[in-house]
Design a protein around this nucleic acid. Sequence first.
DNA 1: CCGTCCTGATATACCGGTTAAGCTACCGGT
DNA 2: ACCGGTAGCTTAACCGGTATATCAGGACGG
Lengths: 337, 337
Amino acid sequence: MKRPTIADIARRAGVTKAAVSFALNGQPGVSESTRGRIMQIAEELGWQPNSAARALSDGRSGVFGLVIDRPASTLGVEPFFMQLISGMQAELSREHIALLFTMAQGPTAEAELYREWWAQRRVDGVFLVDLQINDSRVPLLEDLGLPTVVVGSPRGSGSLPAVWTDDGRSAEMVVEYLVGLGHRRLARVTGMAHYWHTKIRTDAFAAVARRHGVSATFVEADYTSEHGAEATRELLRAPEPPTAILYDNDVMALAGLTVVQRAGLRVPADVSIVAWEDSALCELVHPSLTALHRDIPAHGAQAARQLIALTRHVRLIDLRDPSPVLVRRASTTAVDT
Amino acid sequence: MKRPTIADIARRAGVTKAAVSFALNGQPGVSESTRGRIMQIAEELGWQPNSAARALSDGRSGVFGLVIDRPASTLGVEPFFMQLISGMQAELSREHIALLFTMAQGPTAEAELYREWWAQRRVDGVFLVDLQINDSRVPLLEDLGLPTVVVGSPRGSGSLPAVWTDDGRSAEMVVEYLVGLGHRRLARVTGMAHYWHTKIRTDAFAAVARRHGVSATFVEADYTSEHGAEATRELLRAPEPPTAILYDNDVMALAGLTVVQRAGLRVPADVSIVAWEDSALCELVHPSLTALHRDIPAHGAQAARQLIALTRHVRLIDLRDPSPVLVRRASTTAVDT
DNA sequence: CCGTCCTGATATACCGGTTAAGCTACCGGT
DNA sequence: ACCGGTAGCTTAACCGGTATATCAGGACGG
């Protein structure tokens, strides 16, 4: 199949490339009749602009980039990113922007990717996820001048615009819910401590617990079921184990559930369990898991709209998405006094 | 940050663009001394080739495409694709090929994407997954002449090279394992019937069951936990319900497990459960799930190598990856006679 | 001493778009 | 009859690479 160029169209229409370009881009400079003729020929030939030529000419590639730096083992089970991407796509496809998606291993490799993409003009902008404390990617991206939208946290995002949900408020919500049920010993199995969202959640969790005069224990884990299970075992070994545990993702919550049950304890009678980030899994297991639910695709779509605006030189402000709602299921109950 | 071009390098080195191009590409036509000088200047300036310019010039974009047409809800929970992509990346990154990743909704939208990508020369090749019976994408891609590697099934792939695992053999393996445990009433909760791999699995399952003189029941589902649960309830309602069920993915197996247990039956004492496609989930739940395990990242890497070869005009033959192994866990046991 | 070959470069065209500048024919106004 | 303005094109340059043809100059053979 021969892929036609504007030169082919021009020849057929008996005009020059420039006229064809004007016609196809809705620019003035051609009569309505020639424009119509050209459009029809383009249609017949099934013409589409060569992306490389256009990119070379106007300096934009029509591609956004997303790099995720997490072990594939975790990624596999985490619905979050797939849903995020799905939401982004919905928004990007209508603007005919494509998404370059890569998994990197380690911050150095990720930084290198950004450098290459930018230097090679492969992408017009990127989404930055899993923001870390003292994240070296932020100054790098600012330095490069690569249009970036941070997904997830306005803290530590420097001058980069962010799209976020209020994790602090969500943590408060969960603590207040559990305290309201009479729980006095709370625990949280967290994600990696170097992520900003982990810190934000932990800080808020600790602060509200203190305010209510209840205890709060934290164990760091890495989102995998193995760590989730181990962290739970550690919590249960304490002389006065917690009566309610909040896990930073659904996979660890599920692992925790299993560990608690195997330890001969009942959920929720002995231990209440809450998952941060809802999924089909949470509804599926027995007992079903109380979870913080948010519209992740909508979040992705929001981020995509922001990045599109940014590449069009719109000045952006941080945008907060609706707070998650706490979906109460069978894994939480009032503490048995 | 000003991104340097070969013209900048040429100016600094006091030579022409062409000389720079020769030097950087290892072509003859420059002396070793000038080549060294040019390389060093390029290094200092942090030069990287503009991908659009290169693509325009040599006609290849350095990008492969992957389109997945499944509801985001399913995708989220399925580790398969993330692992597949992860494996592809490993192979692609060393050749500096990027991956354009999109979720489409429906075959028409997907076909349209291929047309656009090809017409716009956005991609040099694509991976085709979830091959269907009478799949219109196959003739389309053949027609376009878009280099394609089919991931998953050599049946119905037409002239397109495939990378596959022997699903028929795997189905046999499971049936023989279950029959060996004394099961006489088998069932399978399948994925969508219009997928080739579903048909291949079902046909093999039915054939081997017949050969061993045991009964085989099939219920179609769509990989979601909802369907998995419903299919299981349907199976259990039968006058003589199956004593062993094979599910086409881990999510449905887990849903099935829950349904069986809530129905007051024991797993594996009353019903044995096997999942097609292993994951952390399978190890995690109680009882842990017997599953067909395969190295999905390796599968992805294999596919990537094939597509790379294909775009270099190497003639390919279908490539079969190692068969999955059956990982025996707690969800299967001998039938109680 | 001249023609030939080889080396190391330059000049230039090309890929397929976009776009500024230039040209022409036709219009209305005085 | 002459002029200015404009609609409707064309010409040509440019984006940043790659590749082919050309060219200058030195070495070499006869």
